[in-house]
Each structure stands twice: as structure tokens, then as C-alpha cells.
């Protein structure tokens, strides 16, 4: 009765792995001025990806939709209890606890990206710079918890969740699958991101104050 069904559409998967790349890359380039341009480029990419994800949360396929992982506190507690008993309830899409990590990652991602852009544009001063570091570290913490959750959930349910996020497939009842993968949209996303990366160095506006003295106020030493 259980069979291979499509759960994650292509845009959701492309979003996930590009977000991984952007976040890890931005984190690794954060402590030096040498890669400041790459850090900023990846920050903009992260914001763009999340902007897409917010839309896809309304217009995407079943499990990508926000309403599929908008759980009530009671459901989250019930899931935690079932987890503590070693018999966690199985969800085809995000489970209630996993969804908390997803919401946090979206919120922290937006906060990190927006505060980063503001720091780069010289709005907000030192306090905002500290806030940018704080929310980015918070995001790293949630990423690590998310990975731990994926490992635990994969072991407990004997299903490879990482592979599912790559192939899109899971093992479940036939009627639980999504019908369309929207591969074309995933291809467009990849193309847009690659074009942005390729074209970024020539976008003068991306580096405020680069060619003008009136921009003033910058003190990123």
C-alpha cells in the first residue's frame, strides 16, 4: 500500500539547497573583508530566495504550502510526546516540530538578510550591526537543530529525509502524493540566481557609495 510518491516539488527543493548554499557561504565569508562582496551577494540571494518561498507558501504544491505546516501548539506538544515515547506520528510533509524550525528559519533569514542590507547601506549604525550578527548566529543555531531533527526523524521513521529533499520522493500512500513537480519553475529559479551572480559585479547600485563621495556615512572599517 505504501509506494514511492512525489512530496517536494522542484522549486521547493531548489529553494532549499540554494538557501543552504547562500547561508553557509555567507557565514563562511562573514569574518573577513576579503570576501565582503561575496557575503553581500549571498545575502541578497538568500533574501530573494525567501521572498520566492513566501509566495510559494501560498501558491505552491500541497506540502510546500504554509497551511500544510501551520500547526496548533497542541499538535506540536502531542508530537513531542509521541516522540518522547519513541513512537513519533508520521507526517508526509513537515512534522509539527520540524515546522517550528522552518518558521524560525524563515523569520531569522528575513531578519538576517534585511539587517545585513541595512548595515551595508549604512542604516542603523553599530546596534544594527550587532543585531545582524545576533540573528545570523541564531539562524546557525536553528540550522544545526534542524539538521539534528532531520537525522533523528530519519532514524526513527527509517526514511532518508535528506534524499527526499534531493529527489522529492517519499514512501507513503498513493493518494498523498503531489501531481506536478513544476520543474520548469525550478529551472527558472536556478537561471535567475546564476544570472544574478554573474551580473552582480557590474551592478553599480549594489555597492552604495562606491563611486560617489556624497554617500558619506560609511564606517565599515
Amino acid at each position: 500500500m505504501s509506494q514511492r510518491i512525489l512530496v517536494w516539488d522542484v522549486p521547493t527543493r531548489v529553494f532549499h539547497w540554494l538557501l543552504v548554499l547562500s547561508f553557509v557561504g555567507a557565514f563562511l565569508t562573514a569574518e573577513t573583508e576579503r570576501y565582503r562582496d561575496i557575503h553581500v551577494l549571498l545575502g541578497y540571494t538568500l533574501l530573494g530566495l525567501i521572498a520566492f518561498r513566501l509566495l510559494w507558501g501560498f501558491f505552491g504544491t500541497r506540502y510546500a504550502q504554509f497551511r500544510s505546516f501551520l500547526f496548533k501548539p497542541g499538535e506540536i506538544i502531542a508530537y513531542l510526546l509521541s516522540l518522547a515515547k519513541g513512537k513519533p506520528a508520521h507526517y508526509v510533509g513537515h512534522n509539527p516540530v520540524g515546522s517550528v524550525a522552518i518558521w524560525l528559519l524563515l523569520i531569522l533569514g528575513i531578519s538576517s538578510g534585511v539587517s545585513g542590507v541595512m548595515v551595508f547601506q549604512d542604516i542603523g549604525g553599530d546596534a544594527l550591526e550587532e543585531l545582524h550578527e545576533f540573528v545570523s548566529n541564531g539562524m546557525l543555531a536553528v540550522v544545526l537543530i534542524h539538521i539534528a531533527g532531520v537525522v533523528v526523524s530519519s532514524l526513527m521513521h527509517r526514511e532518508n529525509l535528506v534524499r527526499s529533499m534531493i529527489t522529492g520522493f517519499k514512501s507513503a500512500k498513493p493518494d498523498q502524493g503531489i501531481r506536478r513537480s513544476y520543474a520548469w519553475l525550478g529551472v527558472i529559479m536556478l537561471a535567475v540566481v546564476v544570472a544574478f551572480w554573474a551580473g552582480y559585479p557590474s551592478i553599480g547600485a549594489a555597492t552604495p557609495g562606491a563611486d560617489a563621495t556624497q554617500a558619506g556615512q560609511h564606517d565599515s572599517d
Partner: peptide
């Protein structure tokens, strides 16, 4: 880089980020 790569040879002058070209006060 040296310190002066971004802060210039004159620390009282406005500098320029060696990577992004942004103004450094």
C-alpha cells in the same frame, strides 16, 4: 592589504573599501 589599503596613507582622510569601493569614514 595594509591598513592603509582601505584607510589610505592619510588616516584623517576618507578611505575606500579595497574590495567593495565603499566609503570608509
Amino acid at each position: 592589504w595594509s591598513c592603509s589599503s582601505c584607510h589610505t596613507e592619510n588616516p584623517a582622510a576618507q578611505g575606500k573599501h579595497a574590495k567593495t569601493g565603499q566609503v570608509v569614514e
